[in-house]
Design a protein around this nucleic acid. Structure first.
Lengths: 344, 344
DNA sequence: CGACGCTGTGAAAGCGCTCTATTGGACGCC
DNA sequence: GGCGTCCAATAGAGCGCTTTCACAGCGTCG
């Protein structure tokens, strides 16, 4: 942990390791990348020399020649919404992104690839594009919620391998992973109907986000098109105020589908405020099955999407694209399931 | 946005720009790093050539020679606690880290330095250390909560510039930024007493976290040492269960200091569950002044720490250390203030 | 008017690594 | 015993950039 020549850490180079082991630089390189065949004796000698000198490869030099950085970016592009001090606040408050990070990190580790988390809003797309162009990363996992976000197209134009976390809004020839949003919403509607709810309503996400629009569509496909809907912004507070609006206009509703667990948590608060019992007076179903679902009272019945698995799949796809540059894009759609707890 | 020679992006090099501008590579380099003096005419010609070819410097080649990466890591080291699916869930659920990221990013931007967010738990300290040793970053902003976390010492041993987000537990000669935790807790205690509360109690953070222990100490220094305390884990649920324990044992308490807003939010739920009105029956004060404080009902009176400013200061210190390698460590302590809302 | 600074530009030497082409040596075969 | 074969290891050529150093041009001053 401390085998530096001087203080302060001028790192030893490969030449010094080679000298210490009595071999050439090329052989040291082979040992490190355990490529080709190296005689066991020599290999050991080199390993000893490495630990003895405390050698660590210089990534800059390496990636200069290999043209790889062995890291990929997880770009989280959140639109600037009014009423929202900082997009970073939203990102570091919504359990979704933690799940994505966890799933991707796990899938990347066996490949010795690092994950660089890059949060961004519209204001610094430019920064992000520059970052990507500079070759810091070999590929991009892109979470871009808004339909009008130009980032997916920009990244694609850059020619850098990318995988999206949801169906791209335009016809972009790019790989993506998504959950069958409509189906998830249908599951919710069916469950509410089966429970005997007569007056359904829903709190959707922003309609410029595909996940927002799709969940609304799916719900209405089963529950009936005229079903009342209010739009939330995928935050707890947004869910709460949307629920209040809904209850103002439709006091009699007895079944509520909320397009995210976070919003559902807010909705539960609104219901409680107004003295509605859940699920007796109003049955509530969320979406995500995030940690928030378990923190709710009562625990939330919700549509589960396997976010960690999906993120891992994204990572796999990305690795494949990086290894095989010409590879044609593909999409992987996961099926959501209904997790029944106490709220419906 | 699309000036590539072929498809797929073999990037133009500096030589090609030089050729296009009719100058030497050295001159192009000077223009890009706007160093030394370049004749205005030539400068323009080079700029034109750059935009025309769509040239972007190769970071690997650059940092190979400059020995800088122009990026720093924000390492968030969270201990593995039982009962916690993933440390990433905690990180991406607590508004604190978003504030730090925002503050640091803002301060780093003018220096054209990137922030790489690196979440870690005890299990992959090794990974992180390797990442740092490989020279991916020029310095480290380190948020390490647990007192027993070996990471600060390890990072320091690496000889890489670092700034901690709190007083280091041992005598580590390293710069750090902190808030006067004890003082903040005293403010809370004084306010509760001034309000006329007779029976105080507190929910502290884990005592192996300096911020946890210090806030408890500060509170007791004013409120009296025998003041009942329960330990939470800085999560909402942790605050809720701690509050229940507290109320079981001390049903008569009328003033509660909770060591974080997130935990306070949980405590409010517990109080509500038991029919205690806030602030009439029990006055509650949180700590942080995070977004959670405003989401609470009633809005939370809380001890504000200027996290964004503190993170910016950390970034400044780090930049200074990077520029001046021998610079002696220093610590900056911010003063917390009491933000009075409705809960106390 | 020649010496002297100054400013602006170019040539070339690396930074530390990977990887191709090549050598050296051990071995088997005729 | 000479020769081809094969494998292990080396020499060396870059990757794309920064940066010293040298030098050319030119205004200034003794």
């Amino acid at each position: 942990m401390s085998a530096k020549s001087g203080r302060g850490g001028h790192h030893p180079t490969m030449d010094q390791v080679a000298a210490a082991a009595g071999v050439s630089r090329a052989t040291v390189s082979r040992v490190i990348n355990n490529a080709a065949s190296v005689a066991p004796g020599i290999r050991d000698a080199v390993q000893r020399a490495i630990t003895q000198t405390g050698y660590v490869p210089n990534v800059a030099a390496r990636s200069l020649v290999t043209r790889r950085s062995d890291s990929v970016a997880l770009v989280i592009s959140e639109p600037d919404r009014p009423d929202d001090h900082s997009f970073l606040n939203r990102i570091f408050t919504d359990p979704y992104f933690g799940r994505v990070t966890a799933g991707a990190t796990g899938a990347l580790r066996p490949h010795d690839v690092h994950l660089v988390v890059v949060p961004t809003d519209a204001d610094d797309h430019h920064q992000v594009v520059r970052y990507l162009r500079q070759g810091h990363v070999d590929g991009v996992l892109l979470i871009s919620s808004s339909e009008h976000d130009p980032l997916p197209a920009q990244v694609h134009a850059l020619g850098i391998p990318a995988v999206l976390a949801s169906r791209p809004s335009g016809p972009l020839p790019v790989s993506y992973v998504d959950v069958d949003q409509r189906h998830g919403a249908r599951l919710a509607a069916e469950h509410l109907l089966a429970r005997g709810c007569r007056s359904l309503a829903t709190i959707s996400g922003p309609l410029d986000i595909p996940a927002g629009a799709d969940r609304l569509d799916g719900f209405r496909a089963v529950a009936g098109a005229p079903v009342p809907a209010e739009i939330g912004d995928f935050t707890r507070v947004g869910g709460e105020t949307a629920a209040h609006r809904l209850l103002d206009q439709h006091p009699g509703l007895d079944g509520l589908f909320v397009a995210s667990d976070l919003m559902a948590e807010g909705a539960l608060r609104a219901l409680q405020d107004r003295g509605r019992r859940v699920p007796d007076d109003v049955a509530v179903i969320g979406f995500d099955d995030s940690s928030a679902a378990l923190e709710c009272r009562p625990p939330l019945t919700t549509v589960r999407q396997p976010v960690e698995e999906m993120a891992a799949e994204m990572a796999q796809l990305l690795i494949a694209h990086i290894h095989t540059p010409g590879r044609s894009p593909r999409s992987v759609i996961f099926q959501p399931t209904l997790v029944i707890r106490d709220s419906a």
